[in-house]
């Protein structure tokens, strides 16, 4: 029975890995996503008052930025893309009264069948990540489709069968793959870089993972490279004794 009950978790868990160490916050992925999904899956992502005083619209991917303040070190800035995490225990699916929201058994993608959605908004309430947005023109719920109409699309060349946001990211901060396969490139990346879940307490078991920013060089200046000491001891004899030595080698 095809209900908003969750499917048995399958072996394949398609999702994204987002590298916060290199995301420069350029919004390229968000705009490419908006553009693709405006002429693809379901109704166009609409915009209200687009040229007026309160412009807004439907987006499936949005880029935040945060200041993070470590003790005793300068504040850092982290750019943070936010879209659907294709949760294994997706509360957005189970709350849906109409059956419009569903999670695919074969690859774990969470989708909305727009022709069935009654626009109640409950799924958006159930999602802790703000990954669902109601389209104000169409009155149906919108969310990241993991570009399901690209990744299997036979009208696209093989190499382009990846999400629009991944394909476009100029900093290569977004990666797409099967997180159910421990040997996939994305899974290895998660293992190596300590990829993590957002809000694990919400018990959604997100498929998407985030890679943390690598530690920054702090303000401890004691830690000079080993050879500095050696460099610094080259004391000038005359004006610059070392110049002479170096030039002699050219003779």
């Amino acid at each position: 029975m095809d209900m908003t009950s969750l499917p048995q978790p399958g072996a394949k868990k398609l999702g994204l890995v987002i590298d916060l160490d290199i995301c420069v916050g350029c919004h390229a992925c968000a705009v490419a996503c908006k553009e693709w999904n405006t002429s693809a899956y379901g109704a166009p992502l609409s915009d209200q008052d687009p040229y007026g005083g309160q412009p807004e619209g439907t987006w499936l991917n949005r880029i935040h930025s945060y200041e993070v303040k470590p003790e005793g070190e300068p504040a850092q800035l982290v750019h943070f893309p936010r879209s659907c995490l294709h949760c294994e225990d997706a509360p957005c699916v189970t709350v849906c009264p109409t059956g419009a929201s569903y999670k695919r058994g074969e690859d774990g993608i969470v989708l909305v069948d727009e022709s069935m959605c009654m626009g109640c908004g409950l799924c958006a309430w159930a999602c802790p990540y703000g990954a669902r947005e109601m389209d104000m023109a169409e009155g149906v719920m919108k969310k990241c489709t993991l570009c399901v109409d690209r990744i299997y699309n036979e009208n696209l060349p093989e190499e382009d069968r990846e999400p629009a946001c991944v394909r476009t990211c100029p900093a290569k901060a977004r990666h797409f793959g099967d997180l159910g396969d421990p040997d996939s490139a994305v899974s290895r990346m998660v293992a190596e870089r300590d990829g993590y879940d957002l809000m694990p307490d919400q018990a959604t078991k997100p498929v998407n993972k985030y890679l943390p920013p690598r530690p920054k060089t702090g303000c401890d200046n004691g830690a000079a490279p080993d050879n500095l000491a050696q460099l610094a001891t080259v004391e000038p004899s005359g004006l610059l004794g070392w110049v002479d030595k170096a030039l002699a080698m050219l003779e």
């Binding site: 405006t38 687009p50 007026g52 023109a137």
Partner: peptide, 14 residues
Amino acid sequence: GTGPDALAYGKAWT
């Protein structure tokens, strides 16, 4: 003039 009040340009082919 000024721009329209609503926009959904992909409508033509979705």
